[in-house]
Design a protein around this nucleic acid. Sequence first.
DNA 1: GTTGACCTTCCAGTGGCTGTAAGGTTTATA
DNA 2: TATAAACCTTACAGCCACTGGAAGGTCAAC
Lengths: 130, 130
Amino acid sequence: MNISAAASRSGLSTKTIRYYEDIGLIAPAQRAQNGYRQYDENSVNELRFLAHARDVGFDLHESKQLLELLRNPKRQSRHARVLVLEKSRQLEERIQQLLSMREQLMMMANRCHGDEGPDCAILAELVADR
Amino acid sequence: MNISAAASRSGLSTKTIRYYEDIGLIAPAQRAQNGYRQYDENSVNELRFLAHARDVGFDLHESKQLLELLRNPKRQSRHARVLVLEKSRQLEERIQQLLSMREQLMMMANRCHGDEGPDCAILAELVADR
DNA sequence: GTTGACCTTCCAGTGGCTGTAAGGTTTATA
DNA sequence: TATAAACCTTACAGCCACTGGAAGGTCAAC
């Protein structure tokens, strides 16, 4: 299978697949006689795995750790679980940050007339020393 | 006032202040005879404004738009309000994404034994075609 | 034989900084 | 007065995770 088939089956772009190979996240693909990269079901599985890991918030370094667990038949499932719980905690932290930012924005918007005049609580609050 | 004083008063780093000048977000600072950048209260206000705008989620392009409103005495407060409400909507969207990611992670963690064995629902779900 | 859809490599750009190097200036201390 | 430290300057590289584009090779259909 050529790279574009691997891309559509895995959910990654061809650019991203080549990039993952460049940075050593996946092994260099086999090559056909014409130099085209060739992918089998197993490599597509790994690519899809990476796409899903990224989708739920893992960065490439963490995704690589997970991939190494997937590849290792002697793995311990608790290692994967630790990574997932830690990522979940990080997401929770980020969510709280975003909620707080959103709340600040709503408070500013509520205090701003939002009319044709220049008086604006939003601008005043952003410029204020806190 | 030198750049490090402006930095500590505004909440930006000296690096960031120079960077904002480089990209034209703020006007080039006045220079003392020795070539050092000089800042007055007004420029510190603008820097702090930018720091706060970034803190609540605006990117540099949006922060610049807000800064231009701040500088313009003929501004209409509704323009600021529109930007704030739109950013709030974007944050809400991002929060929903993160919540969904977190939920997926929790579901995977719940299904994973997290023991010394290799069987792992997390890895199985990440590799699965969906 | 030519069009168009693939594929290849390589380089540059994105955003928002941060780190580092190599130097100049100022201030405090010995 | 020497020197050390704490400033300041510019310039360039690196971070993350791609994405876009150029310039060219290959393949299938008409």
